[in-house]
Amino acid sequence: MNKKLPALGLATVLALAGCGGNLESDDSGSAAAAYPERAVTMLIGQDAGGSTDLIGRALADPASADLKQPITVQNRPGANGAVAAKELAAAKPDGYTIMVFVGSLAYITPLAVPADQAVDINNYEVVTGISQDDYVLIANPKTGFKDVQGIVAAKRPIKYATTGVGTGSQLTSSLLFAQAGVDATAVPFNGGAPALTAVLGGQVDVAAVQLGEAKEQIEAGKAVPIVTFAEKRPTYMPDTPTAAEAGYKVPVQQSRAVVAPKGTPEEVVDRLRTAFQKSFGEQAYKDFNTQRLLTPNEVDGATLLQQWNGSLQTYKDLVAEHKINLSGK
């Protein structure tokens, strides 16, 4: 009666590869020197297939070759990564559970959610920074908008799509329009693709999305780049000014880092960092960055904490200065 699934024959064969249990054993903390002696779990707080997921998977392969142990990627999507972050905080600090942490969870989400739901990056050990993602403000060609000046001069209320509440997309647009004195209404969508669709379909006038998502549409002339929020002009978009050049202070990027639970031994963190630096050096990974328009930000833990804590403070000040309420209430 057990021959109900034709998969079983195949499955049994494959199962011969066999593996040990994945429950947390109690004797693991003993020898950090021997790390790693078993598989490392990499948590990702976003859905499979999203930017963060792809970055994590691109990194995991070469790093596991260096560690000589597999790195198992596990998606624990929810609340912009807060679900995964909470699980990581509760995990044993032995280097066998790590996570790809998104910057927005550390420095933008706290501006939008109540204090008790905010995640503090200082409660984790940062292994290494990964890369940064820039935002670009795009407009539907039918609006006629070509630059921020044009939007201001139109002297009409505009609608802009965001990729969600508490995201960099929302923060960049709201800061820009507050500083430019444009009467703008945010329409939150659920992620980059729906926001982009809303611009292409003319449902909204503009939206800030991640560069990689909009690249093809811009090249095809279906979306007009207004301004990027990068620190300096991205090489593939030399004609689009940055917000700073246009005269606005909107220093917002998405950033990602590998983090471990607080209290992970220093030599384990160093070992992981060495492994990920191997990944960063791979040509395939560099090509991936180029393809996705990601700027490497492969800094050490202390530097990254400084960046992210600095961003949180900057955004808090900017949001207070312009009286922006990200939670939309």
């Binding site: 691109a58 093809e216 996705r292």
Partner: peptide, 11 residues
């Protein structure tokens, strides 16, 4: 597709 170096889009 992106990992393969192909960006799906209008072109």
């Amino acid at each position: 597709l992106l990992i393969q170096g192909v960006t799906p889009g209008p072109q």
